[in-house]
Write a protein that binds this DNA or RNA. Structure first.
Length: 802
RNA sequence: GCGGAUGUGGUGGAAUUGGCAGACACGCCAGACUUAGGAUCUGGUGAGUAAUCGUGCAGGUUCAAGUCCUGUCAUCCGCACCA
């Protein structure tokens, strides 16, 4: 036997798979289909790190197992290549983003191929490819046609460093998701997708899918549905109604003031009749200086200014109440105005204390002299509601009253906001809209798609927040598709998330020139059976892509309402220092280095063995050695294989148990214990001296999805028939997983006193008799009364004696 | 503040869901083979001399608790003045 030359063997089988198109998925096959999807990478200049490898290895194992189980498997890969880092590289180096992208994709592909992933390389998609983004634009136009696209001038999240407007999702925590600079607020006209129209559908759809519970929860929280009421408060000085949203209509009797956001339009409208307008303007200016992040920090010390000239009337008590502006009320949620109930809301309480406003208790149960009471209880000081429970009855009753009097109605609000859909940068899909002075916004005709990204000299964005495209006259100036007059093209591009919102559909039929995918292909492949990716994409990419897919379903372009039947998430690989891997910390591990030193099979095995797949785990080169040793032992075992077409008596139950464990653990992402079980089997074999041909063959089959190169090679070396990847997954028999003799523990009063080898079939009485015959046990119960005897089949005996 | 997760040997982590805690692996110790070992093989390895004690901490339920209940602490990750 020669020493295992992993490098040569891995190259050999990778070449074989490529030559034989081993992992090509077949459209229209009669086999059952299985669609396993992993998140396609952003091809950055630094290449992949081992985190990518872990992210793909999970469904890689599932895919290889499914093929052995007789499925026609679609396990595709592609590149989500539009985005700022590439463009920034282009600006810095002067190399065109197209070239940068091609180089990076090349690098990523070669890294992936070296690991031996069984992707269908004939279906690679690249979101920056004209044949791909043609359909991204096409879907955008369909949305435009269906009223889901609009422009609005609002305060937007703007990153001064990247010079782009960001969505809420991209500016969480007040930091730019790309460069981590502080976000500032800017008034700008930008594009939006009306994702809020799908809020309910996105929420409802979660009932029908198999996502991990915490993934569902995160999405639910992100959508943030709340139910309550809209109530109109009259203004004493004029005919205006101040409309508010509340989830607590039960507390209307406790409303002692109102607060509106500093940007609330009512201030501008009644500017002339507000006596302290200078003071309000000064406060507004003060607020505008704060970043969104500062403003949303929960602060105990509330600020605000009373509006002198606008007084509201509580529609239930008909009492006059003051109106304040304060930055703790946001224009972006509800109506930008609130009714304040200081007795039962901590923010209103803080504000009332500071400004000396009345606090009226309307729900019993707390001590409002000390703090706001936000719990439930019996209504007081509330006229018609007195004495009833606030949750059970008061809300319902108040809603009836509001409806009767015509001053309010039931309402629903979402935390999710419409999707700011634009970047003022070059490297993205051009938005296919023309601005015509007469016709307004006009869609580029479908037959003119793709609207190609024009070549430019200078990718640097304008300092005024204009896209570099705005500087190219030949691109900007065009004719209106509707009336033919001179018009101007939109120069914003789409945000990074656009291309990834539908890529899983393109994989089904990647070369289709007539449609984003054929109906037949979608019918056959969709939905994705299992989607695995990172937790960080649960509230962005996942929500966006579900939205696009649901829209396409509604216009009858797709056949399933949900794109992903099942979703799981892998844990991060941390650096060996226990910190998140990052270039700046210098703890990044390059898969190429590992493949060079240990081989692809060891890398694959280790990323799955290092811990719970769904949990974060630190990288350890030492631990990886264990995987290397295991594969070396599997290799060395070839010399000790004896003849035998059936499992031997000695190893039969071990074989069945191993098949069962590995088969089941793969399905529940418990790769670490699946691998441990195979190691255990090999240890047992080493102790027994040998295994036979049938047993070895099964071990190779089970190990194949994890370590495909070495197992294929051994399969060939051993002279088994055909190639391994064309065989079938081993079967097990539940009945044969049981050993004939088992060891059980004997406890006296819960303490272990002895171990006993018994026949598996022994009855309770027989086992107890055997237990009592044991010398240690007999000594322990000598002279005591046996109170209770418990036998847990196959596990233990517990005798309670006093 | 709200929500979620996690807490087990020197380390990464197992534990059939209430039934022998520490599988598997790393590391370490001893031995073998070697001119050599950061290679390989064999054995040992939670703590304690012992009885015993041990799953973040304090209680509780149970014949039996890492697992269930109550309280509490710590770490990590989301969201964050959401009316």
């Amino acid at each position: 036997m020669e020493r295992y030359d992993f490098s040569a063997v891995e190259k050999k089988w990778q070449a074989y798979w490529e030559e034989h198109n081993t992992f090509r998925a077949e459209n229209g096959s009669s086999k059952p289909k299985y669609y396993a999807l992993v998140e396609f990478p952003y091809p950055s200049g630094s290449g992949m790190h081992v985190g990518h490898i872990k992210a793909y290895s999970g469904l890689e194992v599932v895919s290889r197992k499914r093929r052995l189980q007789g499925y026609n498997v679609l396990f595709p890969i592609g590149f989500d290549a539009y985005g700022l880092p590439t463009e920034n590289t282009a600006i810095k180096t002067g190399v065109h983003p197209r070239q940068v992208t091609d180089n990076n994709i090349e690098k990523f592909s070669s890294q992936l191929k070296r690991v031996g992933f069984s992707f269908d390389w004939s279906r690679v998609v690249d979101t920056t490819d004209e044949d791909y983004y043609k359909w991204t634009q096409w879907i955008f136009l369909k949305m435009f046609e269906n009223g889901l696209v609009f422009r609005d001038t609002t305060l937007v999240n703007y990153c001064p460093s990247c010079k782009v407007v960001l969505s809420n999702e991209d500016s969480q925590g007040g930091k730019c998701d790309i460069c981590h600079s502080d976000i500032v607020q800017k008034n700008k006209e930008v594009w939006y997708l009306r994702i809020t129209e799908y809020a309910d559908k996105l929420l409802e759809g979660l009932k029908d899918v198999d996502y991990l519970p915490n993934i569902k929860l995160q999405q639910e929280n992100w959508i943030g549905k709340s139910t309550g009421a809209f109530v109109n408060f009259s203004i004493k000085e004029n005919d205006e109604k101040l409309r508010i949203y509340t989830t607590r209509p039960d507390t209307l009797y406790g409303v002692t003031f109102m607060v509106i956001a500093p940007e609330h339009p009512i201030i501008e409208k009644y500017r002339d009749s507000i006596k302290n307008i200078d003071e309000l303007d000064a406060y507004k200016a003060e607020c505008a200086k704060k970043s969104e992040f500062e403003r949303t920090q929960l602060v105990k010390d509330k600020t605000g200014v009373k509006i002198d000239g606008i007084t509201a009337i509580n529609p239930i008590t008909e009492k006059e109440i003051p109106v304040y502006i304060s930055d703790y009320v946001m224009m972006g949620y509800g109506t930008g105005a609130i009714m304040a109930v200081p007795a039962h809301d901590t923010r209103d309480y803080d504000f009332a204390k500071k400004f000396g406003i009345d606090i009226i208790e309307v729900i019993k149960g707390g001590n409002i002299a000390e703090e706001a009471y936000t719990g439930d209880g019996e209504m007081v000081n509330s006229d018609i509601l007195n004495g009833i429970d606030n949750k059970k009855e008061a809300i319902e009753k108040m809603l009836e009253v509001l409806a009767e009097k015509g001053i309010g109605e039931k309402g629903v609000q979402y935390k999710m906001k419409d999707w700011a859909f634009n970047r003022q940068r070059y490297w993205g899909e051009p938005i296919p809209i023309v601005h015509c002075p007469d016709c307004g916004m006009v869609a580029v005709p479908y037959e003119e798609l793709p609207l190609k990204l024009p070549p430019v000299e200078n990718f640097q964005p304008g300092s005024d927040g204009e896209s570099p495209l705005a500087k190219i006259d030949s691109f900007v100036n065009c004719k209106c598709p509707k009336c033919g007059k001179d018009a101007k093209r939109e120069t914003d591009t789409m945000p990074q998330w656009a291309g990834s919102s539908w890529y899983f559909l393109r994989y089904c039929d990647p070369n289709n020139a007539e449609a984003f995918a054929s109906k037949e292909a979608l019918e056959y492949w969709m939905p994705v059976d299992w989607y695995n990716g990172g937790m960080e994409h649960v509230t962005r990419h996942m929500i966006y892509s579900r939205f696009w897919h649901k829209f396409l379903y509604d216009i009858k372009e797709t056949n399933t309402s949900e794109p992903y039947a099942k979703r799981t998430a892998q844990g991060l690989i941390l650096g060996s220092d226990g910190e998140k891997m990052s270039k700046s910390r210098g703890n990044v591990v390059d898969p190429n280095d590992v493949v060079d030193e240990f081989g692809a099979d060891v890398l694959r095995l280790y990323v799955l063995f290092m811990g719970d797949y769904e949990q974060a785990a630190p990288w350890s080169e030492n631990s990886m050695k264990g995987c290397k040793r295991f594969l070396d032992k599997v290799w060395a075992m070839q010399e000790k294989i004896t003849e035998g077409e059936e499992y031997s008596d000695k190893l039969r139950s071990a074989m069945h148990k191993t098949i069962k464990k590995v088969s089941e653990d793969i399905e529940s992402l418990k790769f670490n214990t699946a691998i441990a079980m195979m190691m255990t089997l090999l240890n047992e074999v080493s102790a027994a001296g040998s295994m036979n041909k049938a047993e070895y063959r099964t071990l190779l089959m089970l190990l194949n999805p994890f370590a495909p190169h070495i197992t294929e090679e051994l399969y060939q070396v051993m002279g088994y028939e055909g190639v391994l990847n064309e065989q079938s997954w081993p079967e097990y028999d539940e009945a044969l997983c049981i050993d004939s003799t088992i060891e059980i523990a004997v406890q006296i009063n819960g303490k272990i006193k002895a171990k006993l080898n018994i026949p598996a079939e022994a009855s309770q009485d027989e086992v107890l008799a055997m237990a009592k015959a044991d010398a240690d046990v007999a000594a322990a119960i000598d002279g005591k009364n046996i109170v209770k005897e418990i036998y847990v089949k196959g596990r233990l005996v517990n005798i309670v004696a006093k």
